[in-house]
Design a protein around this nucleic acid. Structure first.
Lengths: 401, 401
DNA sequence: CCTACTTTGTGCGGCATCCCAACAAATGGG
DNA sequence: CCCATTTGTTGGGATGCCGCACAAAGTAGG
């Protein structure tokens, strides 16, 4: 089972429907080999016929397209305020989505895990009743995950320390499929690495709320780092001698681009937009409304924070030269009005001409980014080895059969 | 030709000599398959027998080890003051080394390329007379290389703009093997990603001279970014409102950690250590001597610059969580005395506990780092497909045969 | 309408790779 | 000395891909 099966499947995902002959030419295989490969993918329900592809002369080809309905990956998330899941099929369609509010600080670790497991079980049932097969689960956690020890080292917001999340979940689920655990920001980054868009194969994702984090996708692969701690952008020190951060350090990026920094600059302490009791969406909408009306203080705040976002993004763009900087979390809501300041600092701060071709884009995924990325990550296994679908999974081995 | 041939070869490189049975167990293959694979590698002269491996009971195994003498990769470099090459065999041994001084600013582009080609030709001849085969050349260039256009966009120190270095060299060499072109700092980073050391599979390399650059290796793979502009650390803006940089910006890292920053802080303008006419090595040795004698100004300068190195390294470590930060260039010479300040800022500036396990290490490769990395990169092709050796190279295709 | 040409998709033989099972070789322990 | 244990090799079978030939399905031109 060499990798050509997955090669064909990835091609169909990334480049859309095309004929067997075209696949053969593009992938450097023979038409007969592609015929056999497509045949096998068809048997497993992963591709289907899709009309004809007419050339100038000669026999028209029968187009083949990806058919995602047979398999799903499940993404899940453990956050301070909620646990949530999503099931995506191979084509990226949402098959099921669940969310349960809770206060992770007030509950025991066991209890939170139990609730997530219940949610995953429901999601899996939905997948089954949709006639699909679950190939894996990837769970995003708000905290530092040491992948060398398979352990959540510290989750400041959750109040967790040294929790073996992966082992715990695997034990509770007793699932036949792999259960992956990853950092929330990393999974959100994975979700932004849209298949088929070359500029989205090297992505820097910046996720902002009260805290600021994110992730890096390089060459289509998630960059996790040695232990898995990559993507902790919020605590880059960008302003030596600046403001004190909640983490105890001074001058962290978070102190100038976090939600609090924007609100502090935009409004007085008794202003409703700074009332945590109100919904975040409403408060951000109010900020946008004031900006539309031309409120100078609001505009100045957006400009100031945007400038800092651009400085930080510029630092990182110099280092990793992403094709796109994707702004997620609260940045996605107000980012359009920060854009001028961000782009100004980005072009000013990046050595490469035209800022290395880095585009600034706003995420459209909202708060589903992390779970979507998790589902996408779980589905990668199918593209690595499509024979996982329809037959029984065998023991993993490094060797290629 | 599936990838298992390369899998075995990589294992022998990374983990050292071992028996066929052990290889089979570690790689998830059968003993018979490994026997066949080792046999083929032996025929191609890539491995050889290496004594016995005695267990507690049972028949002892015959150990197999990598035998690098049959193939070489060539690394080359185009710098302001010189062009240079190195030939490394598969085991990492230096087979040939050449260097020719020149002033790239005073010569035409054509002339510089001609001289490099002559040097490569001599190196290749050395490889042949050593009885080895050249499998590829990788050239490091001091400048921004746009890999989407295969072109050196701008090389500030060389005074080059929009030079298609790769195409030019391929034309001149007319070589049967691939000719790769990469950024100097990226290749230097590749050289520090020592095979077999897990902590060196995620490396942040910082190269300092007058300018500051570097590269990132993540998961053993060189991170180039969308266009290939990754690793331009020198122009991260770490001190908004700080000193003006040669690039026109303000507050670049280079202005506080570049060679000039150290010398400015350590000595008066008329001090010999600031005389560019003297050799850099001598001037750095003098700095070290003064530090040994306890000269307060020198110590303060090293401490100050070291602090800034640590701040920048901390920013990047938060983003990519490297297993090691490798200091190269002039940092390697005086880095030991900067270490306390670097490590202090690094641990203070990185969110992950124990600074995410990032070690600070000094490069031992000196000015050969880039060419060594180039040779290593060229040799990667052999580990990807060992059948390149001993038979003729066929047209590249994405398909796995 | 018929022929020439182009392109697509599918059989079939052959080769390479790898698994499985059996077996010979080499060693330590009772 | 015999036996359990481990290693390396051999032969048979399965799988995946290539090369080639051929049928199928269209266009272009008379």
């Amino acid at each position: 089972m060499s990798g050509n099966l997955g090669l064909v499947l990835r091609r169909l995902r990334d480049q859309g429907p095309r004929s067997r002959a075209r696949l053969a030419a593009e992938l450097g295989l023979t038409r007969s080999a592609v015929s056999a490969l497509v045949g096998e993918l068809e048997e497993r329900g992963l591709v289907r016929a899709a009309g004809v592809e007419r050339g100038h002369v000669g026999r028209p080809g029968t187009s083949v397209e990806l058919d995602g309905h047979a398999v799903c990956g499940i993404g899940a998330e453990i956050n301070v305020n909620h646990v949530s899941t999503i099931a995506l099929d191979l084509g990226g369609n949402v098959i099921a989505e669940h969310r349960a509010g809770l206060d992770a600080n007030k509950l025991a670790v066991e209890e939170v895990l139990d609730r997530l497991v219940a949610l995953i079980a429901r999601t899996e049932a939905d997948v089954r009743s949709a006639g699909a097969e679950t190939v894996g689960v990837a769970v995003g956690v708000a905290g530092l995950l040491d992948r060398t020890r398979d352990m959540l080292t510290v989750g400041p917001n959750l109040g967790w320390r040294d929790v073996p999340v992966g082992a715990e979940l695997r034990g509770r689920l007793g699932a036949a499929y792999p259960v992956l655990v990853d950092n929330e920001g990393n999974l959100a980054a994975m979700a932004e690495a849209l298949p088929g868009d070359p500029a989205r194969q090297d992505v820097l994702v910046i996720f902002g709320e009260v805290g600021v984090g994110g992730g890096i996708v390089a060459d289509g692969r998630l960059l996790r780092g040695r232990q898995g701690y990559a993507g902790e952008f919020g605590h880059m020190i960008v302003q030596p001698g600046g403001r004190r951060c909640g983490c105890g350090r001074v001058g962290c990026w978070e102190t100038v681009v976090g939600l609090r920094a924007l609100l502090d600059a935009a409004a007085d302490p008794d202003d409703p937009v700074r009332d945590p009791a109100l919904g975040l969406d409403d408060r951000l909408a109010e900020i946008n409304r004031r900006a539309d009306l031309g409120d100078t203080r609001t505009l100045a705040a957006l400009d100031q924070v945007g400038g800092w976002v651009g400085i930080g993004a510029g630092i990182l763009a110099n280092a990793i030269n992403p094709g796109a900087v994707v702004l997620s979390g609260y940045f996605a809501e107000v980012g359009e009005r920060m854009r001028p300041a961000i782009e100004e600092q980005l072009t000013a701060g990046v050595l490469a001409p035209q800022a290395g071709g880095t585009r600034v884009e706003l995420s459209t995924l909202g708060f589903t980014a992390a779970v979507r990325g998790g589902a996408a990550l779980a589905l990668e296994a199918v593209f690595d080895d499509p024979t996982l679908v329809g037959r029984r999974t065998e023991a993993v081995s490094e060797g290629v059969r």
